[in-house]
């Protein structure tokens, strides 16, 4: 008997397996879970502080409508991070799940691609869920916002790949605090709550190198219907960023799983 080897290193089979694990829950409960926190931020900061904020330079829409796309991008990012971060780490270090995969015809490349794909899928669900919330709050400014959901795939790709690479370096749970230390300032400063123009030029350049900045720019541009060639640049940034980290993750995980 010569079975045909699974294509693409079996990446899709890992996605199928992850779906299988979640088959009890509906995608909407999943989305509800991931959307809860950004909704709170939308309320507290968008509506609460938004009431205190006057005309923000460069923002012509209601303040809540301005930060909603940023929160969507962040929520998508966090969903991908959850799957490729702590969840993947648990499977690696405690369940030794990946070790049981590489003795099969699955390849390390397939495993890495599969987990990133899964993170993207999770992000997609979260993005769709948050879009419903934005609509329910009456914060939709342009029909182009529908494209924010597929744009979320790029966000999931970029952050999923980077996070999976980082997970390959974790020595224990406490190391995830350092991930927090990177993610939180990025969340707070990557133009989530105010435009990049409020920063002095030096910091502005710094902010513009952040991947979340490009994720937010992309989603916000679509959500507010401000289509510009710059959006393609944002998308390209995310693709290149994700591709580089995907290669890195593959190398790191090949080493991890072979030793």
């Amino acid at each position: 008997m010569t079975p045909t080897l699974p294509r693409a290193g079996g990446a899709h089979l890992l996605v199928v397996r992850n779906l299988w694990v979640h088959k009890g829950g509906s995608p909407w409960t999943m989305a509800l879970f991931s959307v809860f926190e950004p909704v709170l931020y939308l309320l507290a900061i968008g509506v609460g502080i938004g009431g205190l904020v006057g005309q923000v330079p460069g923002v012509e829409v209601p303040y809540a409508a301005y930060i909603a796309p940023a929160l969507l991008a962040t929520a998508v990012m966090n969903s991908a991070l959850e799957e490729t971060g702590q969840s993947a780490y648990a499977k690696l270090a405690f369940d030794r799940f990946y070790h049981s995969l590489i003795v099969t015809p699955m390849t390390v490349g397939g495993v890495v691609a599969g987990e990133v794909l899964w993170g993207m899928l999770r992000g997609l669900i979260t993005g769709a869920g948050f879009l419903v919330v934005i609509a329910a709050f009456g914060l939709v400014q342009s029909p182009w916002i529908l494209l924010a959901v597929p744009a979320g795939l790029l966000i999931g790709f970029a952050f999923g790949a980077a996070s999976l690479a980082a997970t390959g370096y974790m020595r224990g749970w406490h190391d995830f605090q350092y991930v927090q230390l990177v993610m939180l300032p990025m969340f707070l400063f990557a133009t989530t709550f105010y435009p990049v123009t409020v920063y002095p030029p030096v910091i502005r350049v710094l902010v513009e190198t952040l991947p979340l900045y490009h994720a937010i720019e992309l989603v916000r541009g679509l959500a507010l219907g401000r289509l510009a060639p710059g959006l393609l640049l944002n998308a390209a940034y995310l693709i290149v960023f994700g591709a580089l980290f995907l290669v890195w993750a593959r190398r790191r995980w090949a080493w991890l799983l072979a030793s």
């Binding site: 079975p3 699974p6 089979l13 397996r17 694990v21 799940f97 003795v103 099969t104």
Partner: peptide
């Protein structure tokens, strides 16, 4: 393997079904 490394999130049968798919069956 020495440490089983079974898929703890799945049932007994699912472990076999999912694993078989990894072989392209």
């Amino acid at each position: 393997p020495q440490d089983d490394s079974l898929d703890v999130h799945l049932t007994v049968r699912e472990n076999l079904l999912v694993y078989g798919r990894y072989f392209g069956l």
